[in-house]
């Protein structure tokens, strides 16, 4: 359960979020909004990557400003550009890197790494250089590296934006099957079809909060009303 209480955030004198109050407990929560609406900042608040200028964010009662490390153990984060997320030269090394502080033996690490890569269809690529993977495979690897630590909550910031239709379908299916709570920022409205809760962010405020159909309708109306940015 994530609680956002009276949160505003500014970069310099530019306010990107103002007066946000939310309780995020549902299994699947989507976030939509125009570029620059503040939705990426909202996502980054959830694991303490961004600490709010005013107000506070609680993850299972932990304040992201005080216990960022603890929050990040609970909340995994997937970005849109897999090339920036994969930090190790080979596939298995990148997944193992996530487990470096888990006090596991070499065999146990190899076990878990092999297990999750097999589940993500990358079992045959353990020692493969990461830069030779396709974009879709890279994003799956990024996901595997986050999920191997078994976070309770997964936040995704446009995880399919840089992928083609087939690859984004594959990533979407994988996300669909997760047991974790997933909070996903996306421009791909098809991904959110049927979701119980979708937030619409506009000019730093949550302007709609409800089932996917209503929220997406509201978002489309907003975008059509002559406010492209």
């Amino acid at each position: 359960m994530i609680q956002i209480q009276g949160v505003s955030h500014r970069y310099g004198d530019r306010e990107v979020l103002s007066g946000v109050d939310l309780s995020l407990g549902e299994d699947r929560i989507g976030v939509v909004g125009a570029n620059g609406s503040g939705k990426s900042t909202l996502a980054r608040l959830l694991n303490g990557l961004v600490v709010p200028t005013t107000g506070r964010v609680l993850v299972d009662g932990m304040d992201t400003a005080r216990d960022g490390a603890g929050v990040r153990r609970k909340v995994g984060f997937v970005f849109s550009d897999p090339d920036a997320q994969i930090v190790m030269p080979t596939v298995a090394e990148d997944v193992a890197f996530s487990l470096r502080r888990h006090g596991l033996g070499k065999a146990e690490v190899a076990d878990r790494v092999g297990g999750i890569l097999a589940r993500f269809g990358l079992g045959g690529h353990l020692d493969h250089p990461a830069h030779l993977l396709s974009s879709g495979q890279k994003q799956l690897l990024a996901l595997a590296s986050v999920l191997v630590t078994e976070p309770e909550i997964l936040v995704c910031d446009e995880p399919t934006t840089l992928l083609d239709l087939r690859n984004s379908r594959q990533v979407a299916d994988l996300l669909e099957g997760l047991t974790q709570q997933v909070i996903m920022v996306t421009h791909d409205l098809d991904l959110l079809a049927g979701w119980a809760r979708v937030l619409v962010v506009n000019e730093g405020q949550v302007v709609q909060d409800g089932p996917a159909e209503q929220s997406i309708g509201r978002y489309k109306a907003l975008m059509g009303a002559g406010r492209p940015c």
């Binding site: 980054r44 694991n47 490390a69 990040r72 995994g76 970005f79 920036a84 997320q85 996530s98």
Partner: peptide
């Protein structure tokens, strides 16, 4: 820009913790 994104991803994976 790449460095900014990588830095952010590292922070998300607990490098600064």
């Amino acid at each position: 820009r790449h460095a900014d994104r990588v830095g952010e991803a590292l922070a998300a994976r607990g490098i600064d913790d």
